[in-house]
Amino acid sequence: MSKLLNVSASPHVRSTETTQSIMADVCIAMLPAAAFGVFQFGIHALLVLVVTVAACVLSEYLYELATKRAITIKDMSAVVTGLILALNMPADIPLWIPVLGGIFAIIVVKQLYGGIGQNFMNPALAGRCFLLISFAGKMSSFTLDGWSGATPLAQLKAGMPVDLAAMFLGKIPGTIGEVSVLALLAGAAYMVYRKVISLRIPVTYILTVAVFAFIFGKQDMNYVLAHICGGGLIFGAFFMATDYVTSPITPNGQIVFGVLLGVLTGLFRIFGGSAEGVSYAIIISNMMVPLIERYTMPKAFGKEGRQS
């Protein structure tokens, strides 16, 4: 043998899954919702998507270049952040707003805390909330087919009837990516199939919202279903609450996290001032993750019921 052999500790094989392949899967899973958004809201929605993703990736690249760190844009996590942020935008938002949001998400929320894996809040959501606070008007005016209208949940809050079928398909005003439950579920199914996410967080989240709406809202199936389909709950539950970095790693912690999200969302929606509340519920719950993990450590095999 002419060259030296490689030596390392076992295991000597690796699965085919990488950070990059997982992030790519998340992007693929968001495509149906993105495509629907572009189809419904028009070409400006596409522009928002492209510009936001570009802003995120470029921010990460330039920051890492400036701070002389390894360039990590290849892991595609910045693309995911950009896509989530863009899908959370109204379609006719002036482009500089999502650009600002992307820069904030990547630099302030992600990179300043140490880059991928270190941020304590979902960067895209923190970016969105930053924009919601700064540009409340522009961030929450939605138009559909030239009409500016209230979102279904705002209608619901005002005691008006909603069209559930339209909500399921997405024929409603809202952000680019949150409107079509059908498209979102198709993407979610792909992520579950590819084992990118487990169902623990989204299912407990959605169920808790349903139970909360049933108890504290109206004891009416249509009302409960409207809460599930509206206000970006499906988008938040499957694509944002499941963000690896900012959700618990312990299986029981994920259930607790889902319940907490559901209760907070229900509180904000039914007792709070705004009609939606998914984004705030998620970023607040993000901050509870270390605490949740601490109290939900799994019992080691063969040590159940014993003091560790």
Partner: peptide, 18 residues
């Protein structure tokens, strides 16, 4: 590369540790 806290190691561990 950096840990992304995906929790897959927790899911697969036969000793149910973290």
């Amino acid at each position: 590369t950096a840990c992304i806290r995906c929790g897959k190691c927790v899911e697969v561990c036969p000793s149910h540790i973290v």
